[in-house]
Design a protein around this nucleic acid. Sequence first.
DNA 1: TGCCAGGCCTTCC
DNA 2: GGAAGGCATGGC
Length: 285
Amino acid sequence: MMNEIKIKVNCFNLKATLECGQCFRWNMINENEYIGVIQDRVIKIKQENDFIYVSSNNMYDLENVVRNYFDLDRDYKSIEKEIVKIDEHIKEAVSNSSGLRNLNQPFFECLISYIISANNNISRISRSVNAISKEYGEKVIFEGNEYYLFPTANELKNVSVDDYRKLGVGFRDRYIKDTVSKVLNCDFNINNVDKLSTEALRKELMKLKGVGQKVADCIMLFSCSRREVFPIDVWVERIMSILYFKNNSGFIKKKDILLYADKNFGENAGIIQQHLFYNIREKMI
DNA sequence: TGCCAGGCCTTCC
DNA sequence: GGAAGGCATGGC
């Protein structure tokens, strides 16, 4: 096919990567085949063994866009080889989801998506993010179907709190409005993100309404390549309590879980977190 | 019906 | 600084 590129991959699991809950805008159209939006274009991607086949409405620089988004140039084989040495729980989780990649998602979209994620569930988060895109993002036609890019901060400039509420984001409406304003007037400077240390970036993110440590850590892990952070939500709290504290009732404090992860999980704690999250949800849903 | 969801904010000690 | 309660909404 003319408008399709083929890329050799190694230690890559498309399904686990797109279904582990880190992103909200992909739809499975066949087994191991998905359509979604990355930044400025619609992407169709299919995996067959060690190859992925990618097509898009915009073929310009497509391979680099895909390589960057899926973190293809990082050696996950070596990373997994290291983290499975840490303990048996990690070894078991990784064996079930090997090739799960830590995405490099567009920052602004990730920021808004994870503000929406607070005290929410994945299907509703996904619905809200898609609704915002459809209402305010640019329309793209791909293979005869309509898709919508996630809007820029500027495209959300005149959106009111009530407008957000109508799209189903609930009490997070004012947090989104406030964050968009801060991005637009550079009260939060998006261009500065890559220059900040993880500590400094977390501090900056947490100045935004609706962004606490967990949301900040998700944003840093899923769009800023900070693989050392360990976001703790109710699922991770649950699995960590069971596996590492022999406690089934979820009484372990997040602070103590974080202390354990920082001490034992090292520079790829975030990747370990994703494997644990994916595995517990696969088993319990 | 009541509880839960990739938590955070506000209020009150 | 830490604990408790409230919060929109849809699924089960």
